[in-house]
């Protein structure tokens, strides 16, 4: 992978993705030494993403500096994001940014010379999550001749946008299951169409469930609906229980970027199909591999293909 930054999944080729996953697979046994400092800039709350980047950098032998919460930082005083990243790049060898606005990572990357990873920009993209999702799919179902169902909030779900785009690199049929009000945004459909992806949209999960190798569940947020009743009705419609899975293949891989609320019932957790905790754990080796490769690139001054 020869990128300066990781901003969007659309910048990743199949070779890029496989290079990161291959390195992730071997990294636990033989971690490279990277005595680097990673700057953590999270303008939105995060548990998994932030902690796994933190753990990944430390397991590589480096350390992290953390902006802390927005409430306690100079952002509160009205500093622009462009200023914040230009300051923090002086403290760190690479940056990880989460921000509530779409396009924040793309903009920030133009102001810094160190590698920057988009850890979520509003309802935009979350490409490092996609890499760990693909790692999990590869380990459990393989990445060829694959039928994937993605269910939930496809409109605002940044993990969905990145995953859908990255899957166009592989021989994957994609089914999108959501209420009509939460279907994929036009920009993502446009990209999928451009890539000639095999895509179908559904409002009902039952019809397509038996065909799926992977079921990727995402959270439908209450605030997306005008009233509580409508939310409950929709959320209930896509809830995954052990009974739901009776209709699915025995080796279905059930994934979720977490946190879940109740879209997957807790009695699914002990079933062999439940893969979401393994998926979350994969965040560390995959982010170790990603950071290692971005830092290696920066050190070589290779530049390569700019994102």
């Amino acid at each position: 992978m020869r990128h300066d930054h990781l901003i969007t999944a659309t910048q990743l080729s199949r070779d890029d993705i496989e290079a990161v996953l291959d390195r992730a697979a071997e990294i636990a046994d033989d971690p490279p030494e990277r005595e680097a400092v990673l700057g953590l800039l999270f303008f939105e709350p995060s548990t998994r993403t932030k902690m796994s980047f933190d753990a990944a950098m430390k397991r590589l032998g480096g350390t992290t500096v953390d902006m802390g919460s927005v409430d306690s930082s100079s952002v509160k005083k009205g500093e622009t994001l462009a200023d914040t990243v230009r300051v923090v790049e002086g403290y760190a060898d690479a940056l990880v940014l989460r921000h509530p606005s779409e396009g924040a990572a793309e903009m920030a990357s133009r102001f810094v010379d160190v590698p920057l990873v988009n850890a979520g920009d509003g309802a935009g993209q979350h490409p490092s999550q996609t890499l760990l999702d693909l790692y999990t799919i590869r380990e459990n179902a393989g990445l060829d001749d694959l039928t994937v169902g993605i269910v939930g909030d496809l409109k605002y779900g940044r993990t969905v946008h990145s995953l859908a785009s990255a899957l166009t690199n592989f021989d994957a049929r994609q089914h999108f299951i959501s209420p009509e009000s939460l279907q994929l945004p036009r920009s993502v459909r446009f990209d999928l169409h451009q890539e000639g992806a095999q895509v179908r949209e559904h409002t009902d999960l039952d019809g397509i469930l038996p065909e799926l190798d992977v079921l990727y569940v995402t959270r439908i947020q209450r605030e997306r609906f005008p009233d509580e009743n409508e939310y409950r009705q929709v959320a209930g419609q896509y809830r995954i229980t052990p009974e739901t899975l009776d209709a699915a293949k025995d080796d279905l891989v059930v994934m979720h970027p977490l946190p879940r609320v109740d879209e997957i019932s807790s009695d699914v957790d002990d079933l062999p199909q439940a893969t979401y905790f393994e998926q979350a754990h994969n965040g560390v080796p995959v982010r170790m591999a990603l950071l290692d490769m971005l830092l290696e690139n920066a050190e070589d001054g290779a530049g390569g293909v700019s994102s």
Binding site: T8, T80, A82, S101, E102, G103, E106, M107, G122, G124
Partner: peptide, 28 residues
């Protein structure tokens, strides 16, 4: 909700497509 609509020191930037344009920052 695009970053270019906030008080950041960047101007808007769109790529021109066969039909319409696309924001370089947020892909809209």
């Amino acid at each position: 909700n695009c970053i270019t609509t906030e008080a950041e020191p960047v101007e808007s930037e769109f790529t021109v497509l066969r039909e319409g344009v696309r924001c370089v920052y947020c892909d809209t």
